[in-house]
Design a protein around this nucleic acid. Structure first.
Length: 466
RNA sequence: GGCGGCAUAGCCAAGUGGUAAGGCAGAGCUCUGCAAAAGCUUUAUUCAUCGGUUCGAUUCCGAUUGCCGCCUCCA
């Protein structure tokens, strides 16, 4: 039974979709004002693993991830560069999808953009104005918290003991609000400002939270199954989404709320001021394989803080090299005909462990351990020549099942050797047969320079690219 | 000031009221012309500290210390 830690109840809950085996899920995506950093990608990879595992379990998943392409930072940047919002965000949207592909995150089914859904936002705001859960003040529209008694049910923040501005952030809203907690649904802007839209209640631009309410409900319905995102979005973003959405529809907004914990760098918070903020591009630029980054990002359960270090990234790279290598070796091994039911049983047992671990609120650490146990078991069998032809297809099939969720084995591309390299390998074999090891080592070194690593196995010469 | 989370080997990290998964790094052996790869074995009498509950605690409770986060637009 699949269970999730639901932030709403703060408990482990059995997962039951609202409608048969259909799962509607929404993940808070990036603000496309810059290249996304690895903290962002921890969240998106968590969302990807979630969607993949739900599909593994046989659910029909609709995965929506928004692109926030209008906010203060984007508006300020585009104004500074004197370009339009679209011109400002376009290259970062392109870069974002490149990054997602590189790190092996499958594309969401729908990736709506805020600027293309202003009409839907206006509609919700109008509903809230009509039913008294929103009010106008100095031309802007605010949500009236006192009209939504359940406010705080997600984050469980009690407002009595809180310091105003306790986070040392300054409230930039200069307008009068009925209650300090009320938040902007629509901000009045000057008619000359290009970053604005016409609405029945005045020319302006949407508040931050309203876009997610509008887009999630448009594509997934007024009540949907899973809403996920980074822990920092829990308050105020998600709390406000609930207030707006449920305030407008009177229905439950999302049934399960999942929050991904933070990524730390060398045990410290990642932040610009500490100079330890890395984009995915920075790290790939340092020569690390994207799939190693992926492995590291999900090797710790999503709801625990993850400590990112380059030492560990190196370790992750060794690990995925070993896994990819293992698969290749299994594919290429010369096996005897037959079937080893004992081995197959064990391998299926590991997959079962994997499923139990993933069912337990996506415990990826334990799930990965089962894969490593599988590799050790099969490696031993390979050494003892107890893997038979019929076992291989079954084991490869099971590895594919793992990888439909993990996505770390990479593409199984048939790499063709240059004729020249192939000739060198043959020449080396000839030299070895003649025990001319001086020449054979020379060739091995030569190929090593070209990034080709040779391994002499009992099934012949294997090679791989560094 | 209010509230929450976490502290497990060199590093990352899972986990449980009954005696510590997994990965990386390290060591030894097997295999090899030598390598590489792989396999096997090995690396925490101990889970921040101090008390308490218990037949028994790393796991429950309390205190202390340290780290991380939230308290209005940061994944």
């Amino acid at each position: 039974m699949l269970r999730f830690h639901n932030t709403l109840s703060n408990q482990l809950e059995d997962f039951h979709p609202l409608n048969g085996n259909e799962v509607k899920m929404y993940i808070c995506g990036p603000t496309v004002w810059n290249f996304a950093h690895i903290g962002n990608f921890r969240s998106f990879t968590f969302g990807d693993i979630l969607a993949r595992y739900l599909r593994y379990k046989g659910y029909r998943v609709t995965h929506v991830m928004n692109l926030t392409d209008v906010d203060d930072r984007i508006i300020n940047e585009s104004a500074k560069k004197n370009i339009s919002i679209d011109e400002m965000t376009a290259p970062f949207i392109t870069a974002f999808w490149e990054d997602m592909d590189a790190i092996g995150n499958l594309r969401p089914d729908i990736a709506p953009r805020a600027t293309e859904h202003v009409a839907e936002m206006i509609e919700i705001i109008q509903t809230l104005l009509d039913n008294g859960k929103a009010y106008e003040s100095d031309g802007s529209i605010y949500f009236r918290i006192t009209a939504f008694p359940e406010y705080g049910k997600l984050s469980k923040i009690k407002f009595e003991g809180n310091k105003v501005g306790g986070s040392e952030r300054i409230d930039t809203d200069k307008y009068e609000k009925e209650d300090a907690r009320d938040f902007a649904l629509w901000k009045l802007v000057d008619k000359s400002d290009p970053a604005g839209w016409d609405a029945p209640f005045g020319y302006g631009r949407p508040g931050w939270h309203i876009e997610c309410s509008a887009m999630s409900m448009k594509y997934l319905g007024e009540t949907f199954d899973i809403h996920a995102g980074g822990i920092d979005l829990q308050f105020p973003h998600h709390e406000n989404e609930i207030a707006q959405s449920e305030g407008a529809t009177g229905k439950l907004f999302a049934k399960y709320w999942l929050h991904g914990e933070f990524l730390k760098i060398d045990n410290e918070k990642m932040s610009k001021s500490l100079g330890n903020e890395f984009t995915l591009r920075d790290i790939i630029g340092r020569g690390f394989k994207p799939l190693a980054i992926r492995y590291l990002l999900f090797s710790v359960p999503y709801d625990k803080q993850l400590n990112f270090t380059f030492e560990n990234l190196k370790g992750a790279e060794s690990t995925i090299d070993r896994l990819q290598d293992f698969k290749k070796r299994l594919q290429e091994a010369h096996l005897t005909d037959g079937i080893n039911t004992d081995l197959q049983e064990k391998v299926r047992g590991f997959l079962n462990d994997f499923e139990e671990a993933m069912d337990d609120n996506l415990n990826t650490s334990v799930a990965l351990a089962s894969l490593h146990n599988l590799v050790r078991e099969v490696n031993t069998a390979l050494a003892h020549e107890t893997v038979l032809t019929e076992d291989r297809s079954e084991i490869l099939h099971i590895i594919d099942k793992y990888d439909s969720v993990f996505g770390i084995f990479g593409e199984a591309k048939e790499e063709i050797l240059d004729a020249e390299i192939e000739k060198l390998i043959e020449e080396r074999q000839e030299a070895r047969r003649n025990r001319n090891f001086g020449r054979s080592d020379e060739i091995r070194d030569l190929l090593a320079e070209k990034g080709i690593i040779l391994e002499d196995t009992k099934d012949g010469v294997r090679w791989k690219r560094k």
